[in-house]
Design a protein around this nucleic acid. Structure first.
Lengths: 188, 188
DNA sequence: ACCTATTTTGTCACCATTGACAATAAACGA
DNA sequence: TCGTTTATTGTCAATGGTGACAAAATAGGT
């Protein structure tokens, strides 16, 4: 109990800097020195407070996923279908920096089974939210389809690909959520 | 006109090796030495025939995109809606190694505007195919929605996320392609 | 057999990044 | 003031990848 511990804040500061670097250059091309500079600290401090590269990446992933999960959990349980559509098409997949981070996570997940698992559980939360809020009988698969559509179109928007009218996507999705499936494949 | 030129074949051989390495380890972690070993050649040969790292990446991207484009162009013009659905859900986004490559391209596109442009044009071809084959009046936006849905669900499948019944996705998409939009947002 | 263009081998210096560590400074309690 | 714990600085060797280049080998034309 001598010099006061600033570890928690330093870690936070460093992770924020790391996140900024990752958004700018990606995980692979971000060096410890980059992070240190972004944080206005010495490289050795990054190592002292966070550890090695692997530790740092793990810590940032935790931070990102926890934040995402908290945001999803915070969705009110009494939203209308229209609010869900707005959520899907304008909030969840909208912010470009958020998208950059998401892409990074997906890319890492390509070679990290554990991260795949964790990403999956985050998206599953969203699907369940949508099925609860926007389908008559909490049909999982229609919510899954709606989320897939929103997710896919967000990725395409990233390439500059858009529908002629964004309203069309919304109305198609509204339709998709409201209309009962033909009896054949119906489930849950 | 002395020793016969083997450049074309060597380049092909090296690019194939590079592709294999990229599928295994990704662009960032594939070194010239990796490629050389995979091709059973000397590292210097890679440099001699392909050039530097940047050149090699550019060459592989060209190769991949040209192949993708050719495959899309080869889709018969008289397919039925069901064939289009099968195409979307079972062919285009199915093969895991293809998916790995696609992910790599998307990731590069994150920081390469030109590549974004080229990727966009490939997907646009697919959208146009679908709108021609599967919508009554070649409605771009419904085809766009269907492709987004298939694309998104393929990505999710990569995480292990699936619909309870794949048939549900198909029927939702079939529905989405067939049902006319409400007059409001209709276009094209 | 010789010349020439091309391919192939082998080696080198350079640079960036990482991980490790020793030395020093700072803050607080006793 | 002294001791202890934590934070901070600075430096080092090791690693791994890249680009460059000087040779040597090869295969055809003449």
């Amino acid at each position: 109990m001598a010099r006061p511990r600033v570890g928690t804040e330093r870690r936070e500061q460093i992770l924020a800097a790391f996140e900024a670097c990752v958004i700018r250059s990606g995980f692979a091309k971000t060096t410890l020195a980059d992070v240190a500079e972004e944080a206005g600290q010495q490289r050795s401090l990054v190592r002292y407070f966070i550890g090695n590269r692997e530790d740092m990446i793990g810590a940032l992933i935790d931070r990102l996923l926890e934040r995402a999960e908290a945001q999803l959990q915070a969705i009110p349980e009494n939203d209308s279908v229209e609010q869900v559509l707005t959520l899907l098409f304008e909030h969840v997949f909208d912010d470009p920096t958020t998208n950059a981070v998401i892409m990074e996570l997906w890319y890492l997940a390509l070679r990290d089974a554990r991260l795949r698992q964790r990403l999956a559980s985050v998206y599953e939360i969203l699907v369940i939210k949508v099925s609860t809020l926007a389908t008559a009988e909490q049909e999982h698969d229609r919510a899954f389809a709606a989320v897939s559509l929103a997710f896919g179109s967000a990725f395409f928007r990233y390439l500059g690909l858009r529908p002629n009218s964004p309203d069309n996507l919304r109305s198609v999705t509204r339709h998709l959520l409201a209309e009962p499936l033909s009896q054949k494949g119906k489930r849950q």
